[in-house]
Design a protein around this nucleic acid. Structure first.
Length: 871
DNA sequence: ACACGCCGC
DNA sequence: ACGTAGCGGCGTGTA
């Protein structure tokens, strides 16, 4: 079988995708429809055609020979739209990430490159497939060159070989050029012969075989047709020339450059993330797993768990990789140096053998394992190292840190993937159904490689000066988070039930009210039905639109209230339903038999260094509205006589800003323990502090937040409901008075542009590639991240340090009270009755002095019988 | 699976 | 001229 060479007309498919798809956009405002369409086509082609060689051809900007010969050529064609231009470079990056070489040549269009390459390939014994959106390419068809053309949209394609062209157009592929020479082509500005259309052209070519032969024998024509042909000889010759795809351009071609290679997985994932192509990420991943599973399976030593202790007997440094399935530890692989072993786990008590102070255990996502152990009463006292956390510190923006991905990225090792072995979704296997040999191989290979991975990652960690952050903060924090998860937060069922009933009554009343006023019933939760009611039935003005229809968010609803009182009912309904479903009914299935909820704290998700909380998310419990705030009454201490103590950093982000910017005025304000928003108001509005009104203070508060987020006059004007001009004045005034802040923000953006990243006070790093984007929105987004990340991230550093220290103080002093929650600037302690004062004193001492900044850190402590009272 | 809307810092 | 504040998780409806 001859080798298959796939040649893609990049320009043509790109245009095709651009016009066939609706205008897709990333949240950052980057248009992506052409890239998306092209990429889906590329993936489909590679999968279906399985080519041995691939190339993608593009036009090169220099004027082509056609322009030189005929000025009008393509003159009427519009220049490339702005929304497409911004996609071209990224599209080429994608092609590059597929490890496919681009074919380009100055002064030639993609057509001519394809014409030449297909000819060369055919001469060299390849079977060629040309994919394009342009019918012109049919002239290239032959016995070994097939042409695939997009029919309509981007999913349907039609394949032509020589015979198919003959069947469809009654002419040979070569004669197809003559056909076009006579007919012309409006879109390419090929003039053709006037008054000759498809029908006449086909008739003439069938009779004469070519334009040249036709022109030689015009005497055989008669009447009007004879006249037009004879009067347009030059035009016919020129048209044919323009329609002819050049097949002998000077191109140096080394076929080996175009051998189909594996794609660059990481680069593709990175690009797809940037472009928000989530569906393509999945497509690539599944594809990848199929490939990986072909790896050779090796046989490893399987030992009984009774002998695990012997295996690690004198080791001080081991790596482990457990198999946690259906919520249980089913198996464990252990490695010391180059030897790995596997053991089934039937009894949790077995893990006591790991409980040695001089042992360092390295794992990947160790917390999951430690949490399981802890639920079974085993809390190890050894030292830990976690390669997932290391990988996160090296680049916190990655979507996930699965072991197979990390090993592949840093060690170039394929260990297959766990899902390839266990199946997923509806194909998920039970533990018994899993191929044991494959599983053991997978686990042992992970374990063996984790050690090498650690050494490799450590080099980078040191290079970026993150040893302290890793060893003194993130690693010990893992155990703190474990403890918080396992201990849990106690809820009061009675309070929840009470709230649930109250809220039910309220909701029912409102619903009745709404339906009565409306005159009919509909699903208020459905944005679509609500939109129909508000904008079609009541004819209220549609203020905003979303991708799918009318927008009905609070901002819109608020503006509609003056038109119709019913809208305020809808706002109220929304609030109540949200409270009930998320925070009341949502919690009940998550409570255990001790009425506790055990959130999972994730240390690897945020790009700034914060932790996140899921199932349930305890970091977004209502507080701003009084009714929602009542929910906090359900959060109680685990002991009847105990307390909930809350310790929160006052203005931590502004204090961090004062510290890292060194702004004298801001530092002085904090040193004097002033009311910071009042001071800002006095500066921005240029009035004496005693003349600052509450309204002015409120505005200043919003301005201060804006500064932290990377302010814009538009955002501020919207928030404060003032004009953009006024907002701009506020900002200008702010920067006039706080010059240090202004300098800092300018410098950090400059730094990010130069180095591609920013850092926090503990050298936590975040890369910001967007900041050098040519796309305005992307660039602005990058600039705001550059301004915000050091502030938010340093605040995260500080509270993480506090958590580690608070945890160890509680432990060392043998207190029963427990750290149970962190909400970004606040720590929550479940306090035993007789430990209240000790805990409060300790919290303040630790948190205020965990780090010394240029300004004092202030911690406010509250206590109560529940979380509501504690604030 | 995605879009929308909304809760927190 | 453009579109516009940083970081998350989750419930609901709809395709």
């Amino acid at each position: 079988m001859s080798k298959k060479f796939l040649i893609i007309d990049g320009n043509s498919l790109m245009y095709r995708a651009y016009y066939a798809l609706p205008p897709l956009m990333t949240t950052g405002g980057l248009h992506t429809n052409a890239i998306y369409g092209f990429t889906t086509m590329l993936i489909k082609l590679l999968k279906e055609e399985k080519p041995d060689y691939v190339a993608v051809a593009f036009d090169k900007k220099a004027p082509t020979f056609r322009h030189k010969e005929y000025d009008a050529y393509k003159a009427t064609r519009q220049s490339m739209p702005e929304e497409l231009i911004e996609q071209v470079d990224l599209l080429k990056e994608i092609v590059d990430a597929f490890n496919i070489k681009v074919l380009e040549l100055d002064g030639y269009e993609a057509d001519d490159i394809i014409g030449t390459v297909s000819k060369l390939a055919e001469q060299n014994g390849f079977s060629v497939l040309v994919v394009t959106g342009d019918r012109d390419a049919l002239q290239l068809a032959s016995e070994n060159v097939k042409i695939k053309i997009c029919k309509k949209g981007i999913t349907q394609m039609e394949e032509y070989d020589e015979k198919d062209v003959l069947g469809r157009y009654e002419v040979t592929p070569v004669q197809f050029i003559d056909l076009k020479g006579l007919m012309g082509d409006k879109s390419d500005n090929i003039p053709g012969v006037p008054n000759v259309g498809e029908k006449t052209a086909i008739k003439l070519i069938k009779e004469f075989g070519s334009i040249e032969n036709l022109l030689k024998n015009t005497e055989r024509l008669k009447g009007k047709l004879k006249e037009t042909i004879e009067n347009n000889v030059e035009l016919a010759v020129l048209s044919k020339k323009l329609a002819t795809i050049e097949r002998n351009i000077p191109i140096e071609l080394n076929f080996n450059d175009y051998v189909k290679k594996e794609y660059n997985y990481d680069k593709l994932i990175e690009l797809f993330n940037k472009l928000e192509f989530n569906s393509l990420i999945d497509a690539i991943k599944n594809d990848d797993k199929e490939n990986l599973y072909k790896s050779n399976i090796k046989d490893w030593k399987i030992i009984d768990y009774d002998n695990l202790e012997e295996f690690i007997n004198n080791e001080t440094d081991i790596s482990i990789y457990p198999f946690i399935y259906d919520g249980e530890i089913k198996a464990l692989s252990l490695a010391s140096n180059d030897d790995a072993v596997y053991s089934d786990i039937e009894n949790m008590g077995v893990f006591d053998f790991l409980n040695r102070e001089n042992l360092t255990i390295t794992g990947h996502n160790l917390k999951d394992f430690l949490v399981k152990l802890s639920y079974n009463g085993v809390d190890l006292k050894c030292k830990y190292c976690d390669t997932a956390i290391m990988a996160y510190l090296l680049n916190p923006s990655e979507p996930e840190y699965n072991i197979d991905r990390v090993l592949k990225k840093y060690l170039k090792v394929d260990v297959s993937s766990i899902e390839a072995i266990t199946g997923k979704g509806k194909n998920k296997k039970s533990f018994k159904e899993i191929d044991k040999r494959a599983l053991i191989d997978y686990l042992c290979r992970c374990t063996i490689n984790i050690k090498k991975l650690k050494d490799k990652l450590m080099v980078f960690i040191k290079d970026m000066s993150m040893e302290k952050l890793l060893e003194d903060v993130e690693m010990p924090l893992m155990e703190v988070l474990k403890s918080m998860e396992v201990y849990g937060f106690t809820l009061d069922r009675e309070v929840l039930k009470d709230l649930s009933e109250k809220i039910d009554k309220k909701i029912n009343k409102i619903v009745e009210n709404i339906f009565e006023t409306a005159g009919y019933e509909f699903n208020i939760n459905s944005i679509k039905q609500l939109g129909e009611f508000l904008f079609d039935k009541l004819n209220l003005p549609a203020i905003k639109k979303t991708k799918t229809g009318y927008s009905t968010d609070v901002e819109v609803l608020m503006q509609l209230v003056p038109y119709n009182e019913i809208v305020s009912k809808i706002i109220e309904y929304r609030q109540l339903v949200k409270l009930k479903s998320t925070y009341i009914d949502g919690f009940i299935p998550l409570m255990d038999k001790n009425n506790k909820v055990h959130s999972t704290f994730n240390q690897l998700v945020t790009a700034t260094g914060r932790i996140s909380s899921t199932e349930p998310n305890l970091q977004n419990i209502p507080i701003r509205e009084e009714f929602g705030r009542q929910i906090r009454r359900a959060f109680i201490p685990s002991t009847k006589e105990g307390y909930i103590v809350s310790a929160d950093y006052s203005q931590i982000e502004l204090r961090v800003l004062a510290h890292i910017s060194g702004d004298e005025k801001l530092i002085e304000s904090f040193k004097n323990n002033e009311d910071i928003h009042l001071r800002t108001a006095s500066e921005v509005f240029k009035v004496a502090p005693e003349n600052v009104t509450p309204e002015m203070r409120r505005c200043a508060k919003v301005v201060n937040f804006g500064i932290i987020y990377g302010i814009s006059d538009f955002g501020l004007s919207k928030d404060l409901k003032i004009s953009r001009k006024e907002a701009k004045e506020y900002i200008d005034n702010y920067f006039e008075k706080y010059k240090g802040v202004k300098n800092y923000l300018e410098n950090i953006v400059k730094f990010a542009k130069e180095h591609g990243y920013v850092t926090t006070i503990l050298n936590r790093r975040r890369y910001i590639p967007e900041i050098n984007s040519k796309n305005y929105n992307q660039k602005s987004f990058g600039e705001r991240m550059a301004m915000n990340t050091p502030i938010q991230g340093s605040a995260a550093d500080i509270i993480k340090m506090s958590m580690v220290q608070v945890y160890s103080e509680l432990k060392n002093k043998n207190m029963n009270s427990k750290l149970i929650l962190q909400v970004h600037d606040e720590l929550i302690i479940d306090v035993y009755p007789d430990e209240l004062n000790m805990v409060k004193t300790m919290l303040k001492a630790v948190m205020e002095h965990v780090v010394e900044l240029k300004v004092p850190l202030i911690v406010e402590i509250g206590e109560g019988k529940n979380w509501y009272e504690a604030k």
